[in-house]
Design a protein around this nucleic acid. Structure first.
Lengths: 340, 340
DNA sequence: TGCAAAAATGAACACGTGTTCACTTCACTG
DNA sequence: CAGTGAAGTGAACACGTGTTCATTTTTGCA
């Protein structure tokens, strides 16, 4: 009868026994916290290696009152920008040594339940990319010392840090490009129940062209995404003698749909009108679209979001942050570069 | 001086104190496990409600040796099919009362590290949608009684359950459609370092047309995704007098790229050739592509995967499962329905 | 060599829960 | 009314770790 393996998992106690030291020494070795002699550290590491020891994160988190989890709230991953943002967040979260918990949330109730569950796991932070967390819940997080950061959200909640693409600069870039291309009759396309980000871009765009004494026709799609943009185009073409020659869209999906919708009616960009979208996704660069867009810097957004969580984890009294992430104009076929 | 709130979080002990019962009663109330009188249950629930008590999942998991987490391994979310699959998995995982931990993994080492970390969190199950977990790691999971299920993976690992779209049926549907449409010279397009799923589809396709004494020209793209398909088209057109009139692609991204690449050369479907892809993503249905594709049933895949985890969680001795999920042919412009 | 400061060590407690095990109370039957 | 089984209850243990606090050992210096 060989070794009687009753326990399914090997604990720090087992390692201590084998290395001939106390369990505290094992703990210190792995956390690099207290001081431990070089000789015993080696003994511990060898014993741990032989036994295949790995620390139990549940016990660790229970003791430290904090797990190395970060909660991420997402929605509508079918939008390429959103899945791209999630990918960026996952990579950055892992790079910093955390582990991501992801929840897809469809309404306010779901968001509430989700954040509550995050606190039950004692997460190190919460990243919200969809919805607006109720301030009472945020208070609960603050009490548990759990930092919350919103991405591309309306910045009106106390105790929440925000990271947001620079919509104002983006809208200005788009307006400048359209105007310098000679467009006279501008339009702004958005989903009628848009998120704050879309609305904000629209306001910034209107403000930008207002300085040139121009106004934008406001197109509001009944649906979100590709189909919404397509139908908006159909609706525009159906109206009597429209004369739009420059369109700015709240996001890439709407823009692609709008372009296809216009094509169905026999019009196209840049021949009949100029078109600029928001969110440079993989789709926008493809041959069949070649959309000129405002590009959001996903890597920077993700990095800044995690950075904020870490900073506030260290010092909870820091001032609330509002980070604007620069955007750039990517010129493609639907509104090409100017030729002097 | 009011209540001295020293503890940041309220525990079951606090609830017990307020309700005038023992802590065990509180625990029993929330787990529905032991038996508890109706009267005391109500007292406990009221006290818990007043104090805003929520069970600490770390402590719960530590005690039960199992958390209500499910680990999900993903990769390349920029592919719409993969992000769609993740979305389906998230929704199903939440629907069943679990919480998803998601990790993006880029190579075999990353996969190993990831699964190890999952076990450290004592997850209730692992879902692998990318990469092939080393069998030694799977053994470790089995020892911890953690079920593993692979989606669209090669089914060659012991103790792992598999859920896979029915590639054989899909390939047969594609072959039938192309042949009945009158195609004579078939081609098969795949990425040169494809995953097993792609390779498998190709073999099934070749087998299907072999029964009609036909062979497929094998096109292997240097890159994966849209750009790979596009370059493959360019390469095909560059070759002397090619005469392909029917193409089947390993996935939707390749197919869209191939279509665009052919368009750049002045050819299109279905006029010059028929084209069928795999993975009915949102992209394939758009006006500019209208791709005929084999549709994978994401909801069913997700449901079956979680179901398998639950089943094996209850009975670890069950026989290894290989589930084939039906696929359907979605007819669109690039290979339209037959007209009698 | 002698001595003080620093480093290393192990016992013990805390984290918050689920569950077992005696023990008490209750309801029901003959 | 006595007796029996079931339901309800609380004390105590287990889960596996981090950390404090005395205590022992080592190091550095005169």
């Amino acid at each position: 009868m060989i070794k009687h393996r009753k326990k399914s998992s090997v604990t720090a106690q087992d390692v201590a026994l084998r290395a001939g030291v106390s369990r505290a020494a094992v703990s210190r070795t792995f956390t690099n916290n207290g001081s431990v002699a070089k000789h015993t550290r080696e003994k511990v590491l060898q014993a741990a290696n032989e036994l295949g020891y790995q620390v139990n994160f549940l016990a660790q988190g229970l003791n430290r009152k904090r797990s190395q989890l970060i909660g991420v709230v997402v929605a509508r991953l079918s939008d390429p920008f959103r899945s791209g943002l999630l990918e960026g967040l996952l990579l950055e979260i892992q790079r910093q040594g955390y582990q991501a918990m992801v929840t897809e949330v469809r309404n306010a109730d779901g968001l509430e339940e989700t954040i509550r569950r995050f606190t039950q796991f004692r997460v190190s932070g919460v990243i919200v990319t969809s919805g607006q967390p109720p301030s009472e819940l945020v208070n609960e997080c603050v009490q548990h010392n759990i930092p919350v950061v919103g991405i591309n959200r309306q910045m009106d909640i106390k105790d929440v840090d925000f990271v947001c693409s620079d919509n104002k600069a983006g809208a200005a870039l788009a307006a400048q490009q359209l105007l310098e291309s000679g467009c006279k009759q501008l339009a702004w396309l958005n989903y009628k129940d848009s998120t704050w980000g879309g609305i904000n871009r629209g306001e910034c765009f209107k403000h930008a062209i207002d300085q040139h004494q121009l106004q934008a026709l406001e197109l509001l799609a009944e649906q979100d995404g590709y189909q919404g943009g397509r139908q908006a185009a159909h609706q525009l073409c159906a109206s009597q003698n429209w004369n739009i020659d420059g369109v700015f869209c709240a996001n890439a999906q709407l823009a692609c749909g709008f372009l296809d919708g216009m094509r169905e009616q026999g019009f196209s960009a840049p021949q009949d009108f100029h078109l600029i979208g928001f969110d440079d996704t993989e789709l926008t660069g493809q041959y069949s679209y070649q959309l000129t867009t405002i590009r959001q810097n996903i890597d920077l957004i993700a990095k800044q979001a995690v950075l904020n969580l870490q900073a506030r984890g260290r010092d909870n009294t820091a001032k609330q942050r509002f980070d604007l992430v620069p955007v750039t104009l990517t010129l493609r076929a639907t509104s090409p570069a100017l030729t002097d």
